[in-house]
Design a protein around this nucleic acid. Structure first.
Ligand SMILES: [Zn+2]
Ligand SMILES: [Zn+2]
Ligand SMILES: [Zn+2]
Ligand SMILES: [Zn+2]
Lengths: 136, 136
DNA sequence: TTCTTATCGGGAATGGTTGTCAATCCCGAT
DNA sequence: ATCGGGATTGACAACCATTCCCGATAAGAA
């Protein structure tokens, strides 16, 4: 077997990516790319908006961050603690998020898909509400 | 008690709204506003794009049509047969949609929210896959 | 250090969606 | 039948999140 012709696509570690990660780690709620970019500027550790988008996309692809589509279609990002598959209970007011899992739902989705002859199954499940703090 | 000062917000019936409904009724899959607008033009029963958006928004508000957010954030619309709350099994290839319901999930969402002190609970749940036709 | 090239950044481009507002049309009242 | 006012329409501009572009920069191997 010939040696791999393509050298391991070295993923360089940059100040920018680290800065984005730092903001994510200090954030409890789901945030938009624009909000994260603004926070970086506020901290005096500015990163180009394009780079913020690129970083988040890459982290999302490698499952380092979770994404969530808001009603208006804007994408929100969050660095979750749990490493396994889970879902979210999100406050519409402040964005406070609780990680939850529903083992029953996972199986349900698989079975429903199989029953109708669908494969390559994925699913989205999010719960929205108003947290006790926002109820005042 | 004085008579109602605001006359019943009469919802007028127009050719445009009817045309949009006709397209929706002849469509099996979830479609975007742009696709629906294009189909209207193709049928020679053109309706302004703004009006298409307005009609769909109003029908969505009155639960006459279901909406679905695609990964890229574009909103899709479908006129479902079932009148009660349900979810969707959608083919990523052709958009073929099956209406399904998961009574267990409904209760699970409510309980999870309550357990964490959230109220005014809503949830989104969609299953995506590849239908047998698209597997061909 | 030097070289290769992944990465960055800022500005332009994209594209779905909403806002604007004069012209038009529904529909109940006359 | 006709009138009048308010809902509705539609062409176009504005909006805004996201992506594209490409010359400049800097990480990392040699
Ligand atoms: Zn998560
Ligand atoms: Zn809250
Ligand atoms: Zn439906
Ligand atoms: Zn299909």
């Amino acid at each position: 077997m010939a040696p791999d012709p393509t050298p391991p696509a070295a993923r360089r570690s940059t100040r920018q990516r680290a800065a984005v990660l730092t903001v994510l780690d200090s954030e409890e709620a789901f945030r938009s790319a624009q909000e994260i970019h603004l926070e970086l500027v506020r901290r005096g550790d500015a990163v180009g908006l394009s780079t913020v988008y690129r970083s988040l996309a890459s982290m999302s692809a490698s499952a380092e961050v979770d994404t969530l589509l808001r009603d208006d279609g804007e994408t929100l990002y969050r660095r979750c603690r749990g490493v396994t598959h889970h879902h979210h209970l999100v406050c519409r007011g402040c964005g406070a998020t609780v990680e939850v899992d529903g083992p029953t739902v996972e199986r349900w989705a698989e079975r429903v898909a199989a029953d109708h002859g669908y494969d390559e199954v994925t699913h989205t499940l999010e719960v929205f509400g108003r947290c006790s703090a926002c109820r005042g």
